[in-house]
Computed example of a mutant assay.
Amino acid sequence: MKSLLALATATAALLPLAACHQPNAQERANASAANEAAAENAAAAAAPLPPVVRAEKSFRCKDNSLAFVTFFEGDTQAVVRDTQEGSPTALTAPAAGQPYVAAGGWTMTGNDRGVMLTRPGKPAVSCHV
């Protein structure tokens, strides 16, 4: 009789757990979206950071034009502007020490003390700080 009473008590205690909340389709979809967002955030955190700016220089060129150049660490990326607030042109080099190039006829060699710059439709010109 005591074992029957103990069984009935245990069943009565577990009965409320059987009625636990079961997520509906919307809740499952929300949980799935949250898991996907967390996975994307983790992947974005693992993405490589852009290179650090090494130097920003304004150059006066032999043809009396100006060039504003941002050099990045690793010496394989640079950004050139014709005016200080002008649109940037990103130039890349396959390896440090090789010429920077961009589509449209842009080429640049040199460093943050002086460059040889070729702009689209213009001859190469020497520029200095």
Rank of each mutant, 00 (worst) to 15 (best):
L4G: 14
A6F: 08
L7W: 05
A8C: 08
T11G: 08
A13K: 11
A13R: 11
A13S: 09
A13D: 09
L14Y: 05
L15I: 02
P16W: 05
P16C: 05
A19T: 11
C20H: 13
A25S: 15
Q26F: 09
E27Q: 13
N30D: 13
A31S: 06
A33H: 07
A33C: 02
A34R: 12
A37S: 12
A38I: 01
A39M: 06
A39F: 04
E40C: 06
N41L: 10
A44L: 14
A45R: 09
A46H: 09
P48Q: 07
V52L: 04
A55D: 14
K57I: 14
K57W: 08
S58F: 08
F59R: 12
F59V: 12
R60K: 14
C61Q: 11
K62G: 09
L66S: 15
A67V: 05
F68W: 03
F68I: 00
V69L: 09
T70Q: 05
T70N: 02
F72D: 03
Q77W: 03
Q77A: 14
A78V: 15
R81K: 15
D82Q: 14
D82P: 04
Q84I: 12
E85Y: 11
E85L: 13
G86V: 07
S87E: 15
S87A: 13
A93S: 07
A95T: 10
A96W: 02
G97R: 00
G97H: 00
P99W: 10
P99D: 13
Y100P: 02
V101M: 03
V101H: 00
A102H: 05
A102L: 04
A102M: 05
G104A: 00
G105A: 03
G105V: 03
G105K: 04
W106A: 08
T107C: 06
T107D: 12
M108L: 15
M108G: 09
T109K: 03
G110E: 07
N111M: 07
D112I: 01
R113A: 12
R113D: 14
R113Y: 12
V115A: 02
L117D: 00
